[in-house]
C-alpha cells in the first residue's frame, strides 16, 4: 500500500514566541524547529500501516530549506522516501495555497491513503487536509482517534472526536485523507540505526517549475489570507481570591463579581 504523510516543520512547543519589531512576523532567531506533534501521530500511523500491510511511506513537506531536517527525522522513524516542496516563492503560502501545492505533488505519485495532523501547532488553522481533499476530490475524516482498515484494503473506519466531544464512527472508501488527533497512537522514538539509515534515503526536492506553477499562484501572492499584523495575546491578569469564613457570604461576593465585573451571568 502506498502511504503519503504530510508533515510540517513548526517551532518547538516550548518556544517562547516573540513578535518582531514591525509586527510583520515572529522572531525566528534561536527557535528550535520540530516535526508538528500532530503529524507525528500521522507518521506513526503510516509506519504501522506499512508494517502491517506492506508498502511504502512517503513523507511530503512544504517549507524552507530547514524543513529537510524534519523530513529526515521522519525517515529515521521509518518513512521510506521524502519529498520536499522547496522554493523561495512558496514562502508565505496560506492553507489554501499550501494544499494546492501539496495536491499537485501528491497527484503525481501513487497513493492509497494520505495522513496528516489535525492541525499545525504554529498557526492552528486546521484547514490543509480539507482543502487537500477538495483539490484531490477525496473523502476525508479529521480529528481521528482510531483507525481500522478493512481486510480488503478498500475502506477505512475512523473514530473521530466531534465538536462537543462526542465520538463518531465514519467509514469511507480508499483512497482517502485522515487527519490525526493525538490519541491515535503512541509515536515511537527513532532508533539509532534508523537515524544512521535515514541519510541514505532519498529526499526529492521539487521547486516552482517542477510543479508547473507560476510565481503569482503561490506564496503570499496566490494566498487568499493576508496577515496584516502579528501581536501577542494580552497578558492574563492574576486571579482574584475571595477571602472569608462564611461560605454564603463568599458566594454572594462571587455572584456579585461575576455579574458586575466579569459580566458573565
Amino acid at each position: 500500500m502506498n502511504i503519503v504523510v504530510c508533515i510540517k516543520q513548526v517551532p518547538d512547543t516550548e518556544t517562547k514566541i516573540q513578535i518582531n519589531s514591525d509586527g510583520s512576523g515572529i522572531v525566528t532567531e534561536g527557535i528550535k524547529y520540530v516535526v508538528n506533534p500532530y503529524d507525528e501521530y500521522a507518521l506513526e500511523e503510516g509506519v504501522r500501516l506499512k508494517e502491517k500491510f506492506g508498502g511504502e511511506v512517503t513523507v511530503i513537506s512544504l517549507g524552507p530549506e530547514r524543513a529537510k531536517e524534519a523530513i529526515r527525522n521522519c525517515l529515521a522513524v521509518g518513512a521510506d522516501k521524502g519529498i520536499h516542496l522547496n522554493d523561495p516563492s512558496f514562502e508565505g503560502s496560506d492553507s489554501y495555497v499550501t494544499a494546492k501545492i501539496l495536491a499537485k505533488a501528491i497527484s503525481e505519485i501513487p497513493f492509497d491513503i494520505i495522513l496528516t495532523g489535525k492541525q499545525g501547532v504554529d498557526f492552528d488553522n486546521s484547514q490543509v487536509f480539507a482543502y487537500l481533499a477538495n483539490f484531490l476530490n477525496l473523502p476525508f475524516v479529521s480529528v481521528v482517534m482510531d483507525l481500522e482498515l478493512s481486510s480488503d484494503l478498500k475502506s477505512v473506519t475512523a473514530k473521530r472526536e466531534g465538536e462537543g466531544g462526542e465520538k463518531e464512527m465514519i467509514q469511507i472508501p480508499l483512497p482517502a485523507i485522515i487527519a490525526a488527533q493525538k490519541d491515535l497512537n503512541q509515536p515511537r522514538y527513532a532508533s539509532l540505526p534508523g537515524i544512521m539509515k535515514a541519510k541514505k534515503k532519498e529526499i526529492k526536492n521539487l521547486t516552482l517549475s517542477d510543479l508547473d506553477f507560476s510565481a503569482d499562484e503561490v506564496g503570499e501572492k496566490g494566498s487568499r489570507v493576508k496577515v496584516k499584523n502579528y501581536s501577542l495575546p494580552p497578558e492574563r491578569k492574576a486571579g482574584q481570591i475571595i477571602q472569608g469564613e462564611d461560605p454564603t457570604e463568599v458566594c454572594e461576593i462571587l455572584v456579585k463579581l461575576l455579574r458586575e465585573e466579569a459580566k458573565i451571568i
Binding site: E69, A190, L192, I195, K199
Partner: peptide, 18 residues
Amino acid sequence: TEDQRMIKEEAKKFAQKR
C-alpha cells in the same frame, strides 16, 4: 555533523521524556 546533531536530539528526547 548532521548525523551527530540528529542523534543528540533524539537521545535528548528519549532521555527527557522517558
